[in-house]
Amino acid sequence: MTLSVKHLLGIKELQKEDIELIFQTADSFKDVLNRPIKKVPALRDTTVANIFFENSTRTRISFELAEKRLSADVVNFSASGSSVSKGETLIDTVHNILAMKVDMVVMRHSASGAPWFLSNHTDASIINAGDGINEHPTQALLDAYSIRERLEDVKGKRVVLVGDIMHSRVALSNIFCLNKLGAEVMVAGPPTLIPKHIQELGVKVEYNVKKALQWCEVANVLRIQLERQHKPLFSTLREYALYYGVNRQMLDSLEKEIVIMHPGPINRGVELNSDVADSKQSIILDQVENGVAIRMAVIYLLSGKREVE
């Protein structure tokens, strides 16, 4: 068995079987991560470059740990403090890095579609670690994997994505991923933050967060991405928190206990209150833990696609 793709650019290009293969492989890596020696020699002949044109904590550390636990060599690059500030183009930067014999590139970029562009111009496998407001495939995979871990299966589960759907690459990747796995998906939030015609992707839309939470089994609360909002889309953060924030009182008024997720970083007191984020309903830290296993699985499976002379 093998993946149907050479790069992980987006969930859109993946088959359901690919996702299941990644999950199955991640199960094995989770075992590895719980052993005294958390490292396997599988990729000791592989070099991976982590190229981050945008800030990141979790994703970057998670990828780096995943690569190191597979015994790959790792080089890190961040746009600040590099020749990008001297005016070097994306393709020149990457060609120069690849000229140093790198086999795989993990890239985050603020321009949507940047990884696709790159994959047309290089031989290395590209893993998208987030591109603009388009996709963040490994986040969606680890989200679905965490749901599968908590509720045994993703199929038939009702998942609501709450908050800033418009600017969230996590939302789009999650919609593709959950749909492929057979879950029911709803998006909820203020109308200004939900793109028009998003129903075309096969999701329900709800503007009342409480009603959405009542419907679902899992709520994935997304971050308000102020850095991407170039015009006012809601009046104040305080008002947003009042009407669309998820808090303990709201959860207690539901007739059931739902699972709370958040891809991080959390704006505490805005989209998610601390009394929810730190409760036992929340699987936020499980998501982070599973992230390493999922990324190990993706890197490992893609490395098999490489030609060896």
């Binding site: 093998t2 094995s28 075992d31 396997v40 020699p41 990729l43 002949d45 490395s303 098999g304």
Partner: peptide, 21 residues
């Protein structure tokens, strides 16, 4: 014991899917 990640032919064949240890 699963040995998938310790094989010396990772890139020589189709990738092996690990079994549980």
């Amino acid at each position: 014991l699963d040995i998938t990640f310790h094989r010396d032919d990772v890139h020589k064949h189709d990738i092996h899917v690990p079994a549980p240890t």
